[in-house]
Protein backbone atom coordinates (compact mmCIF):
# COMPACT_ATOMS: atom_id res chain seq x y z
CA UNK A 1 0.00 0.00 0.00
CA UNK A 2 1.21 3.44 -0.93
CA UNK A 3 4.92 2.88 -0.82
CA UNK A 4 5.86 6.08 -2.64
CA UNK A 5 5.13 9.73 -2.11
CA UNK A 6 1.82 9.50 -3.90
CA UNK A 7 -0.78 7.58 -1.96
CA UNK A 8 -2.87 6.86 -4.99
CA UNK A 9 -0.31 5.55 -7.45
CA UNK A 10 2.20 2.74 -7.33
CA UNK A 11 0.37 0.65 -4.83
CA UNK A 12 1.97 -2.63 -4.03
CA UNK A 13 0.40 -5.56 -2.31
CA UNK A 14 1.84 -8.35 -0.23
CA UNK A 15 0.28 -11.63 0.69
CA UNK A 16 0.87 -14.17 3.37
CA UNK A 17 -0.51 -17.53 4.35
CA UNK A 18 0.52 -17.40 7.98
CA UNK A 19 0.98 -13.68 8.72
CA UNK A 20 4.72 -14.22 9.22
CA UNK A 21 6.19 -14.74 5.77
CA UNK A 22 5.04 -12.10 3.36
CA UNK A 23 5.46 -12.24 -0.39
CA UNK A 24 5.16 -9.50 -2.95
CA UNK A 25 2.29 -9.94 -5.38
CA UNK A 26 3.14 -9.53 -9.07
CA UNK A 27 2.04 -6.26 -10.63
CA UNK A 28 -1.15 -6.76 -12.60
CA UNK A 29 -0.75 -5.88 -16.24
CA UNK A 30 -3.71 -5.64 -18.62
CA UNK A 31 -2.64 -8.93 -20.19
CA UNK A 32 -2.59 -10.66 -16.84
CA UNK A 33 -5.99 -9.24 -15.94
CA UNK A 34 -7.47 -10.52 -19.18
CA UNK A 35 -5.95 -13.95 -18.71
CA UNK A 36 -7.21 -14.24 -15.18
CA UNK A 37 -10.67 -13.11 -16.17
CA UNK A 38 -10.81 -15.78 -18.83
CA UNK A 39 -9.28 -18.69 -17.00
CA UNK A 40 -9.78 -18.47 -13.27
CA UNK A 41 -13.21 -19.62 -12.18
CA UNK A 42 -14.65 -20.82 -8.92
CA UNK A 43 -13.31 -20.47 -5.44
CA UNK A 44 -9.72 -19.90 -4.41
CA UNK A 45 -7.85 -23.01 -3.41
CA UNK A 46 -5.35 -21.63 -0.96
CA UNK A 47 -2.18 -22.66 -2.76
CA UNK A 48 -0.32 -19.89 -4.65
CA UNK A 49 1.21 -22.31 -7.11
CA UNK A 50 -2.07 -23.95 -8.04
CA UNK A 51 -2.66 -23.63 -11.77
CA UNK A 52 -6.00 -22.89 -13.35
CA UNK A 53 -6.27 -24.28 -16.82
CA UNK A 54 -8.52 -23.46 -19.68
CA UNK A 55 -8.44 -25.39 -22.90
CA UNK A 56 -9.92 -23.63 -25.86
CA UNK A 57 -10.56 -25.03 -29.26
CA UNK A 58 -10.09 -22.48 -31.99
CA UNK A 59 -10.72 -22.93 -35.65
CA UNK A 60 -8.19 -21.70 -38.11
CA UNK A 61 -8.85 -21.39 -41.80
CA UNK A 62 -12.22 -21.66 -43.47
CA UNK A 63 -14.52 -24.32 -44.79
CA UNK A 64 -13.07 -27.79 -45.15
CA UNK A 65 -9.55 -26.67 -44.51
CA UNK A 66 -10.42 -25.62 -41.00
CA UNK A 67 -7.90 -26.85 -38.55
CA UNK A 68 -8.85 -27.23 -34.95
CA UNK A 69 -6.18 -26.26 -32.53
CA UNK A 70 -6.24 -26.56 -28.84
CA UNK A 71 -4.82 -23.75 -26.76
CA UNK A 72 -4.22 -24.24 -23.11
CA UNK A 73 -4.00 -21.17 -20.93
CA UNK A 74 -2.57 -21.48 -17.48
CA UNK A 75 -2.74 -19.00 -14.65
CA UNK A 76 -1.34 -19.54 -11.21
CA UNK A 77 -3.36 -18.68 -8.17
CA UNK A 78 -0.78 -16.08 -7.18
CA UNK A 79 -1.48 -14.16 -10.37
CA UNK A 80 -5.17 -14.54 -9.83
CA UNK A 81 -4.79 -13.15 -6.35
CA UNK A 82 -2.87 -10.16 -7.68
CA UNK A 83 -5.57 -9.50 -10.24
CA UNK A 84 -8.32 -9.87 -7.69
CA UNK A 85 -6.66 -7.48 -5.27
CA UNK A 86 -6.19 -5.01 -8.07
CA UNK A 87 -9.82 -5.30 -9.12
CA UNK A 88 -11.12 -4.85 -5.61
CA UNK A 89 -8.92 -1.79 -5.16
CA UNK A 90 -10.12 -0.42 -8.45
CA UNK A 91 -13.81 -1.06 -7.89
CA UNK A 92 -14.52 -0.51 -4.24
CA UNK A 93 -11.71 1.16 -2.31
CA UNK A 94 -13.32 3.96 -0.33
CA UNK A 95 -12.18 7.06 1.55
CA UNK A 96 -14.27 9.82 3.08
CA UNK A 97 -14.27 13.11 1.22
CA UNK A 98 -11.42 15.28 2.38
CA UNK A 99 -9.27 12.58 3.90
CA UNK A 100 -6.79 12.88 1.06
CA UNK A 101 -5.67 15.98 -0.67
CA UNK A 102 -4.08 16.68 -4.00
CA UNK A 103 -1.06 18.91 -3.67
CA UNK A 104 0.03 21.48 -6.28
CA UNK A 105 2.66 18.97 -7.37
CA UNK A 106 -0.20 16.67 -8.39
CA UNK A 107 0.58 14.10 -5.77
CA UNK A 108 -2.06 12.70 -3.47
CA UNK A 109 -1.27 12.91 0.21
CA UNK A 110 -2.97 12.38 3.52
CA UNK A 111 -4.85 15.45 4.63
CA UNK A 112 -3.58 15.94 8.15
CA UNK A 113 -6.18 18.57 8.93
CA UNK A 114 -9.04 16.21 8.11
CA UNK A 115 -11.40 16.19 11.05
CA UNK A 116 -13.89 13.67 9.76
CA UNK A 117 -17.32 14.04 8.28
CA UNK A 118 -20.12 15.40 10.40
CA UNK A 119 -22.87 13.03 11.45
CA UNK A 120 -25.16 14.45 8.80
CA UNK A 121 -22.55 14.30 6.07
CA UNK A 122 -21.76 10.72 6.97
CA UNK A 123 -25.25 9.67 5.93
CA UNK A 124 -24.74 10.87 2.39
CA UNK A 125 -23.14 8.53 -0.07
CA UNK A 126 -21.81 11.50 -2.04
CA UNK A 127 -19.30 12.21 0.72
CA UNK A 128 -17.42 8.98 0.11
CA UNK A 129 -15.00 8.74 -2.75
CA UNK A 130 -13.47 5.93 -4.75
CA UNK A 131 -9.80 5.90 -3.87
CA UNK A 132 -8.65 5.10 -7.35
CA UNK A 133 -7.97 6.87 -10.61
CA UNK A 134 -11.21 8.74 -11.38
CA UNK A 135 -13.24 7.40 -14.28
CA UNK A 136 -16.30 9.64 -14.29
CA UNK A 137 -14.73 12.93 -13.30
CA UNK A 138 -13.32 13.75 -16.71
CA UNK A 139 -16.72 13.41 -18.29
CA UNK A 140 -18.31 16.09 -16.15
CA UNK A 141 -19.37 19.42 -17.61
CA UNK A 142 -17.75 22.69 -16.56
CA UNK A 143 -20.95 23.65 -14.76
CA UNK A 144 -20.74 20.56 -12.58
CA UNK A 145 -17.04 21.00 -12.04
CA UNK A 146 -17.57 24.55 -10.77
CA UNK A 147 -18.95 23.29 -7.47
CA UNK A 148 -16.02 20.99 -6.82
CA UNK A 149 -12.89 21.83 -4.91
CA UNK A 150 -10.03 20.66 -7.11
CA UNK A 151 -7.79 19.80 -4.19
CA UNK A 152 -10.40 17.56 -2.52
CA UNK A 153 -12.82 16.49 -5.22
CA UNK A 154 -10.34 14.81 -7.49
CA UNK A 155 -11.97 11.38 -7.03
CA UNK A 156 -15.29 9.86 -8.06
CA UNK A 157 -18.00 9.90 -5.40
CA UNK A 158 -19.76 6.62 -4.67
CA UNK A 159 -23.14 8.17 -5.35
CA UNK A 160 -22.31 8.29 -9.04
CA UNK A 161 -21.62 4.60 -9.44
CA UNK A 162 -23.18 3.18 -12.54
CA UNK A 163 -25.23 0.61 -10.66
CA UNK A 164 -27.34 2.58 -8.21
CA UNK A 165 -27.70 0.86 -4.89
CA UNK A 166 -24.51 -1.13 -4.98
CA UNK A 167 -23.62 0.18 -1.52
CA UNK A 168 -25.24 -0.39 1.83
CA UNK A 169 -24.73 2.54 4.19
CA UNK A 170 -25.69 2.00 7.81
CA UNK A 171 -25.08 3.67 11.13
CA UNK A 172 -23.86 0.97 13.41
CA UNK A 173 -24.02 1.31 17.14
CA UNK A 174 -24.08 4.83 18.46
CA UNK A 175 -21.46 6.56 16.38
CA UNK A 176 -20.03 4.43 13.65
CA UNK A 177 -20.77 4.60 9.99
CA UNK A 178 -20.45 1.32 8.14
CA UNK A 179 -20.43 1.04 4.38
CA UNK A 180 -20.66 -2.36 2.74
CA UNK A 181 -20.19 -3.05 -0.91
CA UNK A 182 -22.76 -5.28 -2.52
CA UNK A 183 -20.62 -5.69 -5.62
CA UNK A 184 -17.74 -7.27 -3.73
CA UNK A 185 -19.50 -8.98 -0.85
CA UNK A 186 -17.13 -8.86 2.06
CA UNK A 187 -15.79 -5.35 1.65
CA UNK A 188 -16.61 -3.23 4.66
CA UNK A 189 -15.65 0.37 5.24
CA UNK A 190 -15.94 2.20 8.53
CA UNK A 191 -15.76 5.81 9.51
CA UNK A 192 -16.27 7.36 12.90
CA UNK A 193 -17.89 10.73 12.21
CA UNK A 194 -16.08 13.79 13.54
CA UNK A 195 -12.81 11.89 13.83
CA UNK A 196 -10.26 11.20 11.12
CA UNK A 197 -10.62 7.46 11.68
CA UNK A 198 -11.59 5.51 8.63
CA UNK A 199 -10.57 2.38 6.81
CA UNK A 200 -11.76 -0.54 4.79
CA UNK A 201 -11.09 -4.23 4.74
CA UNK A 202 -12.05 -7.04 2.42
CA UNK A 203 -12.81 -10.42 3.89
CA UNK A 204 -14.48 -12.68 1.44
CA UNK A 205 -14.09 -15.37 -1.14
CA UNK A 206 -12.58 -13.11 -3.80
CA UNK A 207 -15.49 -13.43 -6.16
CA UNK A 208 -17.28 -10.46 -7.62
CA UNK A 209 -21.02 -10.53 -7.18
CA UNK A 210 -22.04 -10.64 -10.81
CA UNK A 211 -25.65 -11.38 -9.87
CA UNK A 212 -26.11 -7.96 -8.34
CA UNK A 213 -28.58 -6.66 -10.97
CA UNK A 214 -30.95 -9.51 -10.08
CA UNK A 215 -30.63 -9.01 -6.38
CA UNK A 216 -31.70 -5.40 -5.83
Amino acid sequence: MGVTEDELKDKKALYSLNCIDWHLLPLPTPVLLAEVAAVAKGRFVGDPSFEYELTETRQQGEGDEAVKEEFTMKVTEEKRLAATVFNIEKDVSVVPRGAFIRTPHDTVQVNHSFQGLSTLEARNLGNYLHFTEPQQLKKKSILEMADLDPSIDFLDPLSEDILKGSWSLQMEGSSMCVLRSLLWLGLTFFHVPATPQHGYIYMGDGLKNLDLPFML
Partner: peptide, 13 residues
Protein backbone atom coordinates in the same frame (compact mmCIF):
# COMPACT_ATOMS: atom_id res chain seq x y z
CA UNK B 1 -23.86 -13.20 6.15
CA UNK B 2 -25.99 -11.93 3.34
CA UNK B 3 -28.18 -14.99 2.95
CA UNK B 4 -26.72 -15.91 -0.40
CA UNK B 5 -25.96 -19.43 -1.44
CA UNK B 6 -22.80 -19.99 -3.43
CA UNK B 7 -23.91 -20.99 -6.91
CA UNK B 8 -20.62 -21.12 -8.74
CA UNK B 9 -21.11 -19.62 -12.15
CA UNK B 10 -23.35 -16.61 -12.54
CA UNK B 11 -26.97 -16.86 -11.57
CA UNK B 12 -29.37 -17.38 -14.41
CA UNK B 13 -32.96 -16.51 -13.66
Amino acid sequence: GWGMKFVGEGYTP
